[in-house]
């Protein structure tokens, strides 16, 4: 049994899953739009949370947030479940599939056999859509892959019950109903407001613009404080979080620029178009940071491409982004 579900490849799993699910229910939003309305843009440097024993840097909001905020802003009725018992979780999935409803699942990437070996880490924030079952094989639309894939019941069960930080606990979700008409302009405004406020006004020093300055200050001192080798590992982790599969490049800044560009058309608002172009330039600047970082990791950096210089680039990104979010808040 397979539901007629249109798979589209996107950059990021959560915004992609949502965009694909909404399309199935007749609401056609691009991935960038879903990312923007869901206020996906974010920054935080959280040194006390470790990923692979290295401090966590994130360029996007907490997992599940994009989906939840979209549902809220668009007025879509989304139903979410978690389970204690894996068998029960799989049965609940089967029941929804039998009703012809495609289901989103949160999974642990480590246990997905179709992942390239080099990307199999214990990260539990990976979203995908299950849209059919034939015997013990499930049809899966994993939006970061070009084509749909299949996965065995055993593997899917394991992935849905991956353990560790942010364990999915069988998390599944589906769209119950959609409104006759969505307030696109209102949703866009709500998304922009939410993201800009968080970037500018979070009281925590590790979040938003403050978080970027915080990381930049720390980063400048890493070689002295941690030794060259460890400093390079920490730096490498930042680059990966910024550029690795799922961000669309430049730590989601290009995806958000694409959102602003689309939003400018919807609202016929020239200010948003200008801010889109500016954020694109900041994305390019983030990429310069990554280029310098990679050169350091390879041991090929010139004497001027030091950690303090990279920190300066990051601070420049922070200040430019601050101006953009201020202007964004003024437009909505």
């Amino acid at each position: 049994m397979e539901i007629d579900f249109k798979h589209s490849q996107t950059a990021h799993c959560e915004s992609g899953v949502l965009s694909n699910l909404l399309a199935h229910h007749g609401i056609h939003l691009s991935e960038a739009m879903a990312f923007g309305i869901g206020a996906g843009l974010f920054f935080a440097y959280v040194p006390f949370i470790r990923v692979n024993n290295l401090p966590l840097t994130t360029f996007r909001s907490a997992t599940g947030d994009i989906i939840r905020k979209n549902a809220k802003h668009l007025g879509v009725h989304l139903v979410r479940y978690r389970f204690k018992d894996p068998e029960e979780a799989m049965d609940a999935l089967d029941r929804k599939l039998a009703q012809g409803v495609p289901v989103g699942c949160q999974t642990g990437g480590y246990w997905l056999p179709y992942f390239p070996e080099a990307y199999r880490f214990h990260f539990n924030m990976h979203n995908l859509v299950v849209y059919g079952r034939t015997g013990n094989e499930y049809a899966v639309s994993d939006p970061i892959f070009p084509e749909p894939v299949t996965i065995s019941r055993k593997d899917l069960k394991k992935a849905r019950f991956a353990q560790g930080a942010l364990a999915p606990k069988g998390r599944m979700y589906f769209i119950q109903s959609v409104p006759d008409e969505v307030d696109l302009a209102g949703s866009i405004h709500a998304g922009i407001r939410k993201a800009s406020r968080l970037m500018l006004k979070s009281p925590l020093p590790i979040i938003g613009i403050k978080g970027m300055h915080f990381l930049a200050n720390r980063l400048a001192g890493w070689p002295r404080k941690l030794g060259r080798e460890r400093a390079l590992l920490c730096l490498g982790q930042v680059i990966r979080m910024q550029e690795e599969i799922g961000t669309g490049g430049g730590g989601f800044r290009f995806m958000y620029s694409a959102f602003l560009q689309e939003a400018a058309q919807v609202m016929d608002d020239g200010a948003l178009a200008r801010l889109s172009r500016e954020l694109t330039r900041v994305g390019d600047r983030w990429r310069e940071f990554a280029v310098l970082g990679a050169r350091n990791c390879k041991g090929r950096a010139s004497t001027r491409e030091t950690f303090p210089v990279m920190a300066e680039i990051m601070q420049d990104c922070a200040e430019r982004e601050r101006a953009i979010y201020r202007d964004l808040l003024a437009t909505v």
């Binding site: 996107t10 960038a32 970061i144 070009p146 490498g236 680059i239 620029s257 694409a258």
Partner: peptide
Amino acid sequence: MREITYAMNDNGEYELVPSYGWEVKTVP
């Protein structure tokens, strides 16, 4: 495998562009 990146075409419009990867992130 190719992943999606966001990039601008000649008209300054964003497009979804598949990419095989980038050395800068392969290094770390």
